[in-house]
Design a protein around this nucleic acid. Sequence first.
DNA 1: CCCTTACGAAACGGCACCGTTGCGTATCGA
DNA 2: TCGATACGCAACGGTGCCGTTTCGTAAGGG
Lengths: 200, 200
Amino acid sequence: MTIQEPVTARPAGRPRSEKAEKAIIEATLDLIGEGTGIAELSIEAIASRAGVGKTTIYRRWSNKEDLVLDALATLKAPLPPLAGVSVRDDLITLLDTMRREAGQTRTRCVMNIALGDSDRYPRLLERFFDIAIEPRRQAMREVIRRGIASGELRPDIEVEMCMAILSGAMIWHTKWGPAGDLPADLAERIVDHVLPGLAA
Amino acid sequence: MTIQEPVTARPAGRPRSEKAEKAIIEATLDLIGEGTGIAELSIEAIASRAGVGKTTIYRRWSNKEDLVLDALATLKAPLPPLAGVSVRDDLITLLDTMRREAGQTRTRCVMNIALGDSDRYPRLLERFFDIAIEPRRQAMREVIRRGIASGELRPDIEVEMCMAILSGAMIWHTKWGPAGDLPADLAERIVDHVLPGLAA
DNA sequence: CCCTTACGAAACGGCACCGTTGCGTATCGA
DNA sequence: TCGATACGCAACGGTGCCGTTTCGTAAGGG
């Protein structure tokens, strides 16, 4: 009978540094968030920013896309709790979350890739659609469906179209609106311009 | 009395080739339209594509941004004639123009830069906002204003917000909608989802 | 014909980054 | 203590593009 081993047998030698790994991911997200496109993103810059040797990066990821893929995977999408009282309130909550996050570095990562590199890195885009975009879309979809079910919204509207209209308006402001922070009442104003056309 | 000269006296020597100039601009727009970001766009690639020596490019433009600036300046924005009968018809006409152009290479140039490189090349973005975006925005602005004046639209709506909602929805579909051509009735569906909320 | 300028092509030195390798050191298990 | 692996660092040869220069040729005017 053998001595019991841990299920995942620890390989011999010095274990890989958790800290280095995190620093690499952080540096990657930072650089992307600063406006560096995926194409211009260089392993050397990431290594330098992370205070890490290039070896340490190449030991973990075989190429840039894999690294960015893993970096994006760490982006959580903590959805706001929805009151569920009225469609209007819930939509404002969702859109206002978008507005507040638009100022954050991490969210700018998402936006920059989704807007700028969508054609060139389809794998990347797909991956983080799943991670960062789709959960929020799902939340909005359910709010609208609930509104139709409850009679708050007209039954003949297209759910996906409503979502495109609402988030499109917010994205427009994020990218091309007046410089500086987005106005605090933006979400409310968007909803109040759109919702009357959808209400029963 | 001197012999009359052309107002712009032709300098001595071989004149610059119109053909080369056009080929350079074309090559630039082609490459951008194919998804090449401004940062990755290389003078060597442009020269090669245009069948031109790098010298010929550097003789005319001192750097890449100036070249792209001039290339964008050649993009015309031929606005569709508006019937002016109803706000609905005019908005559909404007949005449908966006939809049809979304498939064209030249328009993709515009979109790619506006969406992807907006942070990194503010001069560029500003310039072609003037050239390509603002005329269309102005047209839409007038349609909406006329609608308010005629009583077709509510007087308390925000004109700029309406524009953000309408064009945001179209842009959303362009970038993230189902692959392939945009459906022919997309403009109509957008307008018919938005307009009822704005109508008097 | 001669002068001037533009042309395409090729080559230059310089730079940034690629992906890899070797080095001396650090950190784990046996 | 020893073997194994990871670490940061520096250097490697290779590549692609930079912006410039040189070359032989082409196309205008006086």
